[in-house]
């Protein structure tokens, strides 16, 4: 499947920016089940500084905000060819050791609620257990946009009983790790069958299963990713894979507008 993506983020500042840097993880790379045909990031109100592949093999770009700007726009555009691998993205690659993915982070640290959830997981094989976990998380944390906080931990989301895809991924990862299975966070795009315009990127989790390697689990949609999914960045949790991490002097009171279009190329 050919998927075209257009993703525009617009920052507006009430005060002019004095100095600012943003670290972007917004570039999908060729991988199992996806081939990037073309991809470009355009920046207005700032400039590209440098770039590198990080320890999760994400393409990272560092950009600076221009002095005195009050509006910055990032536009990512491109086409990715995908195929259905039933969520399996395969063998662990790169220098980051697998044990790193078995360790909890601040976001995924298992509290009593996460542990209680993890204890309910059943299944004969690791794969079964992860499928079961996906269902349990969806049941425990209802998908409710607009009511959760972006800085919630997995434990927070289970206690509150609702969240968005980010929380689903965190809770899944927290439980998987609690069960001794390495897991990671994936940020990416999902082509939806009923519409093109979206307000945010999507997020899901991957668990490392003996024999298969990394396998994706999208709690929010209760399925393993298929050819409608494009992976952009992975990490131990959201903070490792976030599309934008920034620091800024000046430029108070920001408004943020995100426009995403994901469509199948006809």
């Amino acid at each position: 499947m050919q998927i075209t993506i257009s993703h525009t983020t617009t920052y507006r500042f009430e005060q002019p920016v004095i100095f600012g840097l943003q670290q972007l993880r917004m570039t999908p790379l060729d991988d199992v089940g996806q081939t990037v045909k073309d991809w470009a990031i355009d920046i207005t109100g700032g400039q590209h500084e440098t770039g590198f592949l990080d320890h999760h093999r994400n393409q990272v770009q560092l950009m600076s905000l221009s002095r005195d700007v009050t509006e910055v726009t990032l536009t990512c555009r491109g086409t990715v060819e995908t195929s259905n691998t039933n969520g399996v993205t395969g063998r662990h690659l790169g220098a980051a050791p697998l044990w790193l993915f078995a360790k909890q982070t601040d976001r995924t640290k298992a509290g009593p609620s996460v542990r209680r959830l993890a204890r309910q997981v059943e299944g004969d094989t690791e794969l079964d257990r992860m499928h079961n976990l996906m269902a349990l998380v969806a049941e425990a944390v209802s998908y409710t946009p607009g009511k959760s906080q972006a800085d919630w931990s997995a434990e927070d989301a289970v206690i509150e009983g609702h969240g968005v895809c980010q929380d689903h991924a965190h809770v899944f990862i927290a439980c998987a790790r609690d069960l001794g299975i390495p897991a990671r966070y994936v940020s990416g795009y999902l082509m939806m069958d009923d519409r093109t315009d979206q307000e945010a990127m999507h997020a899901w989790a991957e668990a490392h299963i003996e024999g298969l390697g990394w396998v994706g689990f999208d709690v929010s949609n209760a399925m393993c990713p298929d050819e409608r999914y494009v992976r952009v960045a992975t990490g131990l949790d959201y903070s490792d894979a976030a599309p934008v991490i920034g620091t800024r002097i000046g430029g108070e009171t920001e408004s943020l507008a995100v426009q995403i279009q994901v469509a199948q190329q006809q």
Partner: peptide, 12 residues
């Protein structure tokens, strides 16, 4: 220095 690690990892 914000971003020094990015420059470092890019070999700068």
């Amino acid at each position: 220095v914000p971003g020094i690690m990015d420059v470092y990892r890019a070999g700068g």
